[in-house]
Design a protein around this nucleic acid. Sequence first.
DNA 1: CAGTGGTCTAGACCACGCT
DNA 2: GCGTGGTCTAGACCACTGT
Lengths: 264, 264
Amino acid sequence: MARVIIDPRSDRPVYKQVADDLRRRITSGEFAPGDSIPSEKEMEGYYGVGRTTARQSVALLRAEGLVITEHGRGTYVRPRLPVRRLSGERYRADRDQIGDGQPPATSFTKDQGIGWSEYRLDRTFTEIPATPELAELLAVPEGTPILERRFTFHTVDGPQQMSTSCYPLELVAGTPVADPANEPWPGGNLAQLATLGITVTKVTERVRARMPMPDEMAALDIPAGVPVITVTRVMLAGERPVEAAVDIVIPADRVELNYTIDLD
Amino acid sequence: MARVIIDPRSDRPVYKQVADDLRRRITSGEFAPGDSIPSEKEMEGYYGVGRTTARQSVALLRAEGLVITEHGRGTYVRPRLPVRRLSGERYRADRDQIGDGQPPATSFTKDQGIGWSEYRLDRTFTEIPATPELAELLAVPEGTPILERRFTFHTVDGPQQMSTSCYPLELVAGTPVADPANEPWPGGNLAQLATLGITVTKVTERVRARMPMPDEMAALDIPAGVPVITVTRVMLAGERPVEAAVDIVIPADRVELNYTIDLD
DNA sequence: CAGTGGTCTAGACCACGCT
DNA sequence: GCGTGGTCTAGACCACTGT
């Protein structure tokens, strides 16, 4: 009987002791990513605890992002997904590509190293008045007409990110840029702005992380215990903000952001 | 009786319906950050559910980072903490300050806008052989002697971040830099390297997010439902890596990272 | 069908914070 | 002392996945 490892009289709650043991067995490699861990029934016998307590242990490991549960199948060590490297340098590559006659490749496709046909894009375009946040980012008065464009990007690996990108309406009204049918636009935002005669000279990104909202978990297929990274991006032409992406939302289990700061 | 909002025969589990209602009341502002939400006993009566179900709803909101529970006191909408802006530009400021005779201020203090005396630093220095990861980051053979320095930074607001910063031992052996007693070093890493005759010309940062490990939750005082942002940083002099911070760990509820990409 | 995790109840006892 | 959340049990029934 291995239940000796659990001490019911310890100050540490039984469910945490059980979780500690499972965590150790996971991080030590005894259970590898994708492996199943013992069923709740097995834990009852092995650790000598009730089912509720066993479930509480699993819930803890789930919140830590260590395991996922699949109804009717079992509990598994969370598999590692392929990580997409999103580099700040991609904007430079986009700029350099503008008008060079190459086949279309947006930042998104180049980040993946995937071809044009392998991704899908859902989009919704709406005209809205500038919210206080948008007004500040775009340096326009509150209420200024804005073209809000919501995107969801998919690859063969499933949904990858959501974003909301906004242009001041006066920049794009009546141009092909305002037509959702033209998405995905070859060359991305920078090429799009270039057709309007606008040269982006600077991009700022503000990075945060938080737990996803329920609708984001559903839309992006995010398992329990996995946070999202959010990016607020502003593109500037000189000192003038020309685009603001208020909420780029990316599941943190499939992305890493890379930045370079030059000091010379 | 307000319990009409719960439909026990719905496909949606009761505890999720309860959580939905509480979430709505939180995001709508009915419960503001810092406010207490109804006790488990009150939920039993108000929603007509058992205590276990009420607790399950609270557990869900906790995992989402919306509420925190305090034993013996109650359940509260998670208060917002002051956000520290960590800009990539801080390295430029550090560089510009080297040797200018100003009072000591490291990146960390400038980020805060706080004074020298308001932060505390725990550090442990160890000599280790380069792990495969360190070897790659520092472009040295595996096993190369490394000075590993572990830090924990505190302000009056509590612990703020942990980091592990590594120098190739040959760069720093026998110099004041290798002495923990000299930390915190006025001017930070860049000034430290400058005393060795090394001019850092480039910094790369790799940003990720994940849920904290139990020891990190304890050391950094992280509530349930709050992820950590991790940064892997490399400082380069020309093409030569001179410092690698393998794991900068920052609770995501008190930081935001800012980056600028110049395209001209 | 058997085995798995998901939902829910009723109840007991404990630990903590406040008054 | 009283109200709060924390731990734990035994048991029932449901829903899903596999054979």
